[in-house]
Nucleic acid binder design. Structure first.
Lengths: 337, 337
DNA sequence: TTAATTTGAGCAAGCGTTTGCACAATATTT
DNA sequence: AAATATTGTGCAAACGCTTGCTCAAATTAA
């Protein structure tokens, strides 16, 4: 309670040395002899000294904090990314502070403001699905805070980017369906302002065409990722005279929803309808039938993002400033035959 | 890049006032006239001033940061708690910084050290499942950082606690099974050093007895929450001459695992075997049959924890320092008849 | 032995805000 | 009109740590 916090000055006084010496000793400066270093370390231990990071940050002009911006914390993929970032961060003596945007640009801007005020050393972010204009990021960059974007990135800003091969993932998913005999493949997409969904759509289209099939009218449906839109698409498709024999969804959640709806509508999966989603989750294993998916290497993306940001902070701009991670096709029962 | 960061001194110089006046104006002190406040605010806006929180924190001896410790970020319940904390936190001008323990005491201690160094104003924590001794928390408390514990709490420390009614939840779950006609109910528990599991076990036992049934030998199984232990319990139970006709699991994950295993073993759910778990998750809705559960009010727990910590920080020790949240019985197909 | 280095430590000025106290300039009271 | 209270600002000292310089002592070189 009354333990008026202990500072390096207390150590200095007790040992009859200067505070600067204490500071240097504790920071293991080569300019202090091993002997006094030891004395100082001991005394620090003894009286329970604890470095005040706030003061240190102010003095050093460096907080050793990385700000992380993600849409949702409660999301399989994003929490993997966070783990990847965190693991590397602690190794390098960084702390991370997370902000959720709930996919809202406003929250995204607030997060950025907060990070800037907090003087984080760098920011790792996945754009909200709403985000079109990214001038708020440019502003941050201009004041000197390095930025790394992952997954939902923008090419309108010069910074390292870590992304997955959306095109290839979609291509593989659809090719897999076609190999299984599907011919009428529908695509449930996302908002078109978001690049990753464009790429997934392109992969879908190319896969259909390159495999000698037709792109059917009305079989590609853009959504805002809401449940409502998924319902609408499904009503449209399942009510058709000739319903699709496969659906490829642009997110893992959509895959789960679609599966539920199809089953409720009396479809047998995968016999009547095959399903595969871009993005995996634990629920994919529990749903019956288990749901095939394109798995994204979240942990790995987190690590690479952290590596990038560290280099940016150190001023070592590496050569390849955007890295594309391979995806993994996970075949489960929903697309098996 | 070269934008040498803008300070209140810059504003002061340009406006020919003292830095202290600028500070007061920006903090809306009543001691500054509306006129000069306005001039200062305008100039601040104009030259893009951004309060340096680090300096402010050092001066004020207050960071306005709350440290949050949870076992896993990627967990339905915990992320709800975090959302609850965060929503209230931003409203009160607090930032939160999250640390995952991955259910390891060592990580828990590290997190505490980091928070202490960062001079967080308060800590909200859910103990790791490994944690027995909590002297690391006591140490933190002694240096003056208030603590609030939730869910997995210890009564060996004097601080506000937010928990769910584990006893009642277990009691309700088991009573529900019995009402449905189950007579041989097994309980899959957790580590016994963890109070919440004891309470759940107690609720289970009392429900069985108060409903006129017998506690069957070998029907209560303690685990360390590992997959291995779940397998072992299931092998034991399902191999019995008379297998249980219902299983109540102490965590949501166990419920999911148990369901999978039972189905794989050829059991019809809920006809041969009813299942209900303490703890809900999205997968509970997707698994077939959908899984009944005791739902814990995570968001609400987060809010209450944040309220508590704010009061602690303000030095207003409220009266009721531990609050028990009611649970909700969610009946789905796995226990329906 | 003297001069040139090296080594170890201290001084003091920051880092950007906040805040108790002092103090003019007004406004209010006798 | 003089005395008192009020208002609006400024001064300067923190907050706790870091770091460029300076400098004495110890070491080495000449």
């Amino acid at each position: 309670m009354s333990k008026s916090t202990i500072t390096i000055n207390d150590i200095a006084r007790e040992l009859n040395v200067a505070p600067s010496t204490v500071s240097r000793a504790l920071n293991n400066s080569p300019r202090i002899s091993e002997a006094t270093k030891e004395r100082i370390r001991e005394k620090a231990m003894e009286i329970g000294y604890d470095l005040n990071m706030v003061a240190s940050s102010l003095s050093r002009q460096r907080t050793n904090i990385i700000g992380v911006i993600i849409p949702f914390i409660n999301n399989h993929f994003f929490s993997l990314v966070v783990s990847g970032i965190e693991d590397l961060a602690v190794k390098s003596g960084f702390r991370i502070i997370i902000a959720q945007t709930y996919d809202s640009v406003v929250k995204e801007e607030e997060a950025l403001k907060m990070f800037s005020s907090a003087r984080v050393d760098g920011i790792i972010a996945c754009l909200s699905v709403e985000t079109r204009d990214i001038s708020h990021f440019k502003r941050i960059k201009k004041v000197g805070i390095p930025i790394v974007l992952f997954d939902r990135v923008s090419f309108d800003i010069d910074c390292p980017k870590v992304l997955v091969d959306n095109y290839d993932g979609a291509f593989q998913a659809v090719s897999h369906l076609i190999k299984g005999g599907c011919e009428r493949i529908a695509y449930l997409g996302g908002p078109s302002n978001c690049r990753i969904f464009d790429e997934r759509a392109k992969g879908y289209k190319d896969a259909v065409k390159k495999n000698g099939l037709q792109l059917l009218p009305g079989y590609s449906f853009s959504t805002d990722l809401s449940e409502r839109d998924v319902h609408e698409a499904m009503k449209l498709w399942l009510g058709k005279y000739k319903a699709p024999d496969a659906i490829f969804t642009s997110t893992g959640n959509q895959g789960l929803m679609v599966t539920k709806l199809a089953i409720d509508a009396g479809f047998k999966i995968p016999d009547d309808l095959s399903i595969i989603s871009f993005g995996d989750s634990p629920s994919h294993e529990y749903i019956v039938p288990s749901l095939s998916a394109i798995e994204m290497p979240g942990y790995d993306i987190g690590r690479s993002s952290m590596e990038f940001i560290e280099n940016e902070i150190d001023g070592k701009k590496g050569d390849s400033r955007t890295i594309i991670k391979p995806i993994l096709l996970v075949i489960r029962s929903s697309s098996f035959r």
